[in-house]
Amino acid sequence: MFPDEFDYHEATSVSEAIDLMGEHAGAETELLAGGHSLLPAMKSGLSSPDVLIDIGEVEELHGVEVDGDTLSIGAMTTYSDFIAEDVSEEHAPALYHAVRQVGDTQVRNRGTLGGNLAHADPASDLPGAALATDATIVVTGPDGERRVSADDFFFGMYATDIGPDELVTRVEVPSAADAVGAYAKKPSPSSGYAMVGVCVQATVDGGTVTTVRVGANGVMDHGVRLEGVEDELAGESLDEDSIAAAADRASEGLDTAMMMSDLQASAEFREQLVGTYTRRALERVLDRTATPAAAD
């Protein structure tokens, strides 16, 4: 179908975007980034905002750069632009592998990292990666910037800590040049969204796991850390046995009432899959630890 009518404004700077949001505060307003979540919802008639503020072309929101110990990613950086930057894989390997699996070729050419995180689709590939990489989401509003840890950013289906007058401007990932990352995903055969996706970033030193963070999407109504897995692996040697033990604890502490259950998979099956895909993600980490510098 076709979108309902709306007013369209293109912002050329962050401050202009914030001003526009202020001007249209009384109306139902949506920010338009790549549009690959919003436009399908509008075309299906599910979403009918009065005003769209297009921030896709805001120059200052594009680009990936290393700033000291931080990889800083402009919110409107497309997936494909992110993948194309060497520093992405080097400093945020887990995020890099997750981004490679978002959508398809065309979606990756248009969709943006900031748009994805702000939309907070629980079945998207990035919430888990944001958690696994310990990302900080920078949101900007009339009162300036706010920095929100990924751990505090997602709190429900399509629900985040972004205020109505704010936008995501940047994602900051602590550089993890020594770490390896992996993302194992069971895509829905129809939509390609994650029925379950597990993202791991770990540092393995001499066979021992020194740091590990594991995030999952698709399982719960928002991205979650798999703390049982982290707990099991921290300080252990990474091998078949520890991976199996960690995978067994994948769904530990997850609130089953808030688990996703739909046509694609029941909550019960997701609980099973989160273990399987945790194992697969960890096996890839193990592989990559054994043979570093394997390039895509």
């Binding site: 179908m1 369209y8 293109e10 338009l32 549009g35 690959h36 436009l39 399908p40 075309k43 299906s44 297009d54 896709g56 494909s80 398809d104 070729t105 065309q106 979606v107 050419n109 248009r110 129809s190 939509s191 390609g192």
Partner: peptide, 27 residues
């Protein structure tokens, strides 16, 4: 389709393949 999945509408925009049914003309 209208859900950005079938790709029949793919064109190249500034040198990249995009789904022209999930892109506004104003964009």
């Amino acid at each position: 389709c209208e859900s950005s999945l079938c790709g029949a509408c793919t064109v190249r925009m500034d040198g990249e393949a995009v789904k022209s049914c999930t892109t506004l003309a104003v964009q």
